[in-house]
Simulated assay, not measured.
Amino acid sequence: MPAGEPLVFPLGHAMGPFHQQRGAPPAYWVVRLGWDSPLLPDRATADVWALAHGVPDRVASTPWTRTELCRAAREAGVEDPAAVLDALLARGLAAEVAPGTEAAAEFTGTHRVQSLLLGLGELPDRPDVDGIGLLGMPALAQVPLGTYEFWQWGHLWPTLTEAAAGLAEMAAQAPQHEPEEADPVRVLDRLLRDLHRLLSVGAVYLDRSLAVADAQR
Score class of each variant (00 low, 15 high):
residue 4 G to L: 00
residue 4 G to P: 00
residue 7 L to T: 06
residue 8 V to Q: 06
residue 10 P to L: 09
residue 13 H to G: 02
residue 13 H to V: 01
residue 16 G to E: 07
residue 17 P to Y: 03
residue 17 P to Q: 05
residue 23 G to F: 01
residue 24 A to G: 09
residue 24 A to D: 11
residue 24 A to H: 09
residue 25 P to G: 00
residue 26 P to V: 02
residue 28 Y to K: 11
residue 31 V to L: 15
residue 32 R to W: 05
residue 34 G to L: 05
residue 37 S to R: 15
residue 39 L to V: 15
residue 41 P to I: 11
residue 42 D to R: 12
residue 45 T to L: 10
residue 49 W to L: 10
residue 50 A to M: 10
residue 56 P to V: 09
residue 58 R to Y: 00
residue 63 P to K: 08
residue 64 W to I: 02
residue 69 L to I: 12
residue 71 R to E: 11
residue 72 A to S: 12
residue 72 A to G: 02
residue 73 A to M: 03
residue 73 A to W: 00
residue 80 D to T: 15
residue 87 A to D: 15
residue 87 A to R: 15
residue 89 L to P: 08
residue 90 A to R: 14
residue 99 P to R: 08
residue 99 P to F: 07
residue 100 G to I: 06
residue 102 E to C: 02
residue 102 E to G: 12
residue 103 A to Q: 13
residue 106 E to F: 03
residue 108 T to H: 06
residue 111 H to E: 06
residue 112 R to L: 07
residue 113 V to M: 15
residue 113 V to I: 15
residue 115 S to D: 02
residue 117 L to I: 09
residue 118 L to I: 11
residue 119 G to M: 05
residue 119 G to H: 06
residue 121 G to H: 13
residue 123 L to C: 08
residue 124 P to R: 05
residue 129 V to Y: 09
residue 129 V to Q: 13
residue 131 G to K: 09
residue 133 G to K: 07
residue 138 P to Q: 06
